[in-house]
Design a protein around this nucleic acid. Structure first.
Lengths: 195, 195
DNA sequence: GTCTATAGATCGATAGAC
DNA sequence: GTCTATCGATCTATAGAC
């Protein structure tokens, strides 16, 4: 041990960068914005991320991917109790996106051509989410085709709920839509078929 | 008649501006991009839109609002045949968003703080869409509460389908999700209740 | 490792020739 | 009405003091 306390690390800066990218988008998040959000000067940011904004966004996406894998994807893939796993997913997602006040950076990034450099990451994020959820539904004896469709619809529904809740400025919109998605999946799990 | 043929008008530039804003976002659509998209020099753009980018975006949003009002909202509000009106809505929307390849500018604008200046327009767009669709469903004897929920879910579902289709780069994703939304609404119209 | 200073490019916007 | 030239501000990125 050196005994020196590290005040700031690359990992420590990533959450602040993520929030800045979420609010301003990739193009709108200037280095001035990122510097203010992290409390680090430009020089420090380039010390941690020599590749500039693009490397910052890559680090943010990697952090998001890691969080979703641990918290959402793996529990769905290894679920012994599908209903409980689906419930947990919706609870975690609702908290993560703060009932729609918080934008999904991955989804928003895919809307603009500027996000083309991250296309593979964006695709992988949604592909794995849908596959993990479908796998969980299949574990509840839902036919493969139905499970895939329900999973796709649920993930899509969450994205739509974020867009609409942001547009209307109402958290209740998000909760209403997502609760209905949750009920739909739980109904399919219990009933064994699409409602 | 003067006999002079007008080569370029303000109205003529709006569609090109809309496409540029869709692809690059408000911040990402620089005047160089907008100039190239319209084929007009900066001077000409400022001649048509003295307020700069903000006025250009306002003109684009007004054009979108007009199109949706004529093509989507009014037919829903005045529908004599609700099932036909809902079917027409999904057909028009699928064509308009080019099966998800084309971003919803209004929805995307609401995701970033930069779109805050257009918050009222964004809110109005989605509010009227949901209200018009709910009205149409009520005309099919669906209870008011169910109609509102179904309408909200359908509009949200379309937005989610766009986000997901763009992220996955697959038109089929959009069609699958939207077709299911369509079937859900038509089922409610025929059955008179939520499935 | 953090900062300030600064380079070089591009930004939004304006002025003025035609 | 369209263009080029240009302004000042801001952008990304780098250099160098500490």
């Amino acid at each position: 041990m050196t005994g020196g306390r590290v005040l700031t690390t690359r990992e420590n800066a990533v959450p602040a960068l993520a929030e800045a990218f979420r609010e301003h988008g990739f193009e709108g998040a200037s280095l001035a914005v990122l510097s203010k959000a992290t409390g680090l000067g430009k020089g420090s940011l380039y010390n941690f991320f020599p590749g500039g904004k693009e490397e910052m966004m890559e680090a943010v996406l990697a952090d998001i991917d890691r969080w979703f894998a641990e918290t959402i994807f793996v529990p769905l893939e290894q679920a012994e109790d599908p209903a409980a796993a689906v419930t947990a997913m919706f609870d975690e997602v609702t908290a993560y996106f703060r009932s729609g006040r918080r934008v999904c950076l991955v989804g928003a990034l895919g809307l603009n051509v500027g996000g083309g450099a991250f296309a593979a990451t964006i695709n992988g994020y949604f592909s794995r989410w849908i596959a993990a959820l479908a796998h969980c539904l299949e574990a509840a004896n839902i036919p493969s085709a139905s499970a895939a469709q329900l999973a796709e619809e649920a993930v899509s529904g969450i994205q739509g709920a974020i867009v609409l809740a942001r547009a209307l400025g109402e958290d209740s919109t998000f909760k209403r839509i997502v609760d209905r998605q949750r009920a739909s999946l739980l109904g399919a799990i219990r009933g064994g078929a699409t409602p």
